[in-house]
Nucleic acid binder design. Structure first.
Lengths: 111, 111
DNA sequence: AAGCGTTATATTTGTAAAGGTATAACGATT
DNA sequence: AATCGTTATACCTTTACAAATATAACGCTT
């Protein structure tokens, strides 16, 4: 088999993208670092881009995905809500299942 | 369920994209019209873009996907080979199966 | 040999997306 | 009240991609 099959999935809410691979990895980085700026840095992404991605996610999700605080001892921070965590887990498991499914599908063909 | 799950699949050969949705619909239009320029026009796509897409497909596929002729009574033309047809069919059936699979997957969650 | 519609390709132009920079606000700590 | 690291947002620049334009070659047909 010379050919490989690839895929990208995403979740939409009212026609707008809610979650894709990039946003999920950003949410995961937020969960690990407790900060949007640190998360962005860890992914080599500008803070601005990270912020606009998170803004889109938060404005379209049914429930808050993150909580933010400004000021304070550490300057502030961003944390993933438990709802956000469940979104991340659902996305990643479906994504992995999709890959397996597609590999099976293409192995059925005679390409 | 407020959320919808979407996907795009594509087939790669040695890390390069061989076939995606856009290329498949172009191949189908070629099969219907017998001409690359007519196919491009029917899809509202510039000839140049259509040609470069087809060029990429043809240079990466294991076997020729189209045959072209220049000059002649109708000016020339482009036709889909039977191998090209089998590629199109394989892609479309896998794509539809993928959509169904994903709908099932997301309905399992409690998002 | 002139004309036609097509394939094939280079060059330029225009536009939308991404990126960089700057700045304000915030609140605990010192 | 000055400092610090963070969130939040505006503005400008750059860059990558799409689109438009131009041109050549080809081979039936007339």
């Amino acid at each position: 088999m010379k050919y490989k099959i690839k895929s990208r999935i995403w979740i939409e809410a009212d026609g707008n993208i809610l979650l894709g691979e990039g946003r999920v990895s950003l949410l995961k980085a937020i969960d690990e670092t407790g900060s949007l700026s640190k998360a962005a840095k860890s992914l080599g992404m500008s803070y601005k881009k990270a912020w606009s991605l998170i803004d889109a996610v938060n404005s379209r999700a049914e429930k808050p995905v993150i909580t933010t605080s400004i000021g304070g001892k550490s300057g502030g921070g961003t944390e993933l809500t438990s709802y956000g965590k469940s979104l991340v887990i659902a996305f990643e498991t479906i994504n992995e299942n999709c890959w397996k499914f597609l590999d099976k599908e293409i192995s059925k063909t005679d390409l």
